[in-house]
Amino acid sequence: MGILLTEADAAAGAGGAGLISMLIMYAVVIGAMWFFLMRPQSKEKKRVAAMLASLAVGDVVLTTSGFYGVVIDMKDDMVIVEFGSNKNCRIPMEKSAISRVEKAGEN
């Protein structure tokens, strides 16, 4: 009877070690997923937020719909963008609709 108990205890101990190694593997996989998927997304959000924070009147912007325009007025979350050369096409839009900013003094 003593032999059976020691074999059962050894099997239980091996199962616990397998569980720990499986948890470590899950942690490694989750860490890799965060590093390759979530981290770049958060860096992109920070880049876009910094770009929109540096937006100023006179900057040339590219909207998400593909139109180039010049910022002529700004409010909290809205900008008024002038499209074309006739100075009559002024459209208010949200800042989140801007995908790229080119500063007025840069090429």
Rank of each mutant, 00 (worst) to 15 (best):
L52H: 09
K46F: 13
M38S: 12
N86W: 01
Q41R: 06
P92L: 00
G16V: 09
L55M: 06
L37M: 03
D59W: 04
G13H: 11
A27Q: 11
N88L: 14
V28R: 08
F67V: 10
R47V: 14
V57F: 09
A14S: 14
D73R: 08
V61S: 05
V71G: 02
L52S: 05
E82C: 00
G13D: 15
G58F: 03
G58M: 04
M22R: 06
E44S: 01
M33L: 11
S54Y: 12
G16F: 06
A27C: 07
G18H: 04
N88R: 14
G15N: 09
R39L: 15
P92T: 00
W34E: 07
I24G: 03
W34T: 06
M74V: 10
S54G: 15
L23N: 12
V81C: 02
I80E: 10
M74S: 04
V81H: 00
F83N: 01
D59E: 06
S65Y: 02
A49M: 04
T63H: 03
D77T: 03
S85A: 07
E82S: 02
C89G: 01
L19P: 01
G66W: 08
F36D: 03
I80M: 12
M78L: 11
G31V: 08
M25A: 10
T63M: 07
L37V: 05
I20G: 04
I72F: 01
E7Y: 05
A53Y: 05
A53Q: 11
V60R: 08
G84C: 08
V29R: 01
N86G: 05
Y26V: 05
